[in-house]
């Protein structure tokens, strides 16, 4: 038991705590958007903590080597770069397929934006038809 092992164990413990929060957030939040919100953030930082923690933990043991740390750090970076993109794709798909916002929501600027775009298209179409005649 040395300092590196202790740090690694602490990081893994913190990571699992954030995993727990992420699961609890899925139960407690009222709609898709808020659930994505809590689960994405906590799961990403939880994974980061667990992976880097395992890398540091292995440095302190007899069988471990520096290769553990570099590999876990690479995995953590890939996860950090890809997780928010999948969250964005899921939340956008949810909005496009018409999942409603929670009734407590205060503003929805995206709806206004989409409606303004539709109106522009409707205004443009008759003008083009008129041009063809």
């Amino acid at each position: 038991m040395n300092a590196l092992t202790a740090i690694g164990e602490a990081l893994v413990l913190i990571g699992t705590f954030f995993y727990f929060l992420s699961a609890l957030g899925l139960i407690r939040m009222p709609d898709v958007y808020n659930r994505m919100q809590t689960s994405t953030k906590s799961a990403t930082l939880g994974s980061l903590g667990v992976m880097v923690g395992v890398g540091i933990w292995a440095l302190g043991t007899d069988f471990g080597s520096a290769a553990w740390l570099t590999k876990t750090v690479v995995i953590a970076i890939f996860l950090l770069l890809t997780n928010p993109i999948s969250a964005h794709a899921l939340i956008r798909a949810a909005y496009k397929s018409g999942v409603p916002l929670w009734e407590g929501s205060v503003v929805d600027k995206y709806r206004e934006h989409l409606e303004a775009k539709e109106r522009e298209e409707v205004e443009e179409t008759p003008a083009e038809e008129g041009g063809e005649e």
Binding site: L21, D31, K41, L45, S105, V106, Y110
Partner: peptide, 26 residues
């Protein structure tokens, strides 16, 4: 910023009143 985000999530999830006021902003 990420650690702050997670403490923020922890606060909102564990708080008994669930203090959220969501919305989509531009």
């Amino acid at each position: 910023a990420m650690i702050k985000a997670n403490l923020d999530v922890a606060y909102r999830v564990l708080h008994p009143k669930r203090p959220i006021r969501p919305g989509i902003v531009k």
